[in-house]
Amino acid sequence: MFAEFVKRYQSWHDRNQDIAALPWLLFVVLAIMTVATGGRFLRAHNITNLLAQMPELGLLSLAMMVPMVTAGINLSIISSANLTAVIMALFLKGVFPQGAGGGTTIIIIVGAIALGMIVSIVLGLLNGFLVGYVEVPAVLTTLGTMILYEGITLAITRGFVISSMPEAYLLIGNARILGLPIHMIIFLVVALVMAIIFHRRPYGRHLFFVGSNPTATAYSGVNVRRVLLKTYVISSVLAGIAAVVMLARFNSANARQGSSLLLSTVLICMLGGTDPFGGFGKVLGLVMAMVILQAVTNGLNLLGVRSFATVAIWGAMLVGVIAYRYYQHQKWERKRKQLQRARMQQ
């Protein structure tokens, strides 16, 4: 039984070398935080707190990961999520009748979510068209759309915060089904779907091909432009789903919400084994990385570290992760060359 488990782990470890260290890291982080906070970290109240912030961070990190696998990046996820959230909030506040019945409520909420999805698809199409068809570098495209989307949101809201959504909508943020919060279920379902798309569908394969060598992919008959267009639409839709969750959890929307999340999404992707030069990335790694980062943030919070310090620590962690990945790659290169040399001598 135990030997079987060890064998299985060994095989998983060999197949997933880039994320094999993460479970151990998670364990170490949890242990350190529990000891440092004197057990406060493991209390039920804190665990709920820890889980509550995960869905939006996870959804946004997935939105960052999809273009990163194609060697791009999407800097506009936060501003596109804010724009979606603001439009949904305005729709909900504008259309919602006082004392409406159950049927109308559901229709309106579904309508708001549908509107949000349409908005995020449009925002994603602009990114995808520019990156795929006009061949603008992804960094600059999304930097430009980030400015533009934030500007549009500012213009719509005139810099104000839109708050107090209908009660029924807030259920997405705090109701539970079978003990699990609804937003957690949304995240788990989306992560599962993304894992299937990434690792089991032809489109997912194409995504990785484009990331490792776009020219070769084009010559092997894949429509690279279509793949890139789809990539940015998917990324934007994921940001839109994050907007649905955020609107329900914060009960408000504005133009500059969560601007520090951009750093954490990049950090989570890099820690989770996604290669910013494209071609590698795993949803499982991303989820583990997210839990690790969330545990660190939450633990620091319990220890009374201020939020600015947390941001600085995130930045330092990102540099650390980049360094770690670099040296890991170098180690693999050396191993590969040794093997090659050994084979040559035979």
Partner: peptide, 17 residues
């Protein structure tokens, strides 16, 4: 050998923080 934008995002936050 990291993308300059990612290093820049990290350093931006470190400096401000």
């Amino acid at each position: 050998k990291a993308p300059s934008i990612i290093v820049a995002i990290a350093n931006l936050n470190i400096y401000y923080g």
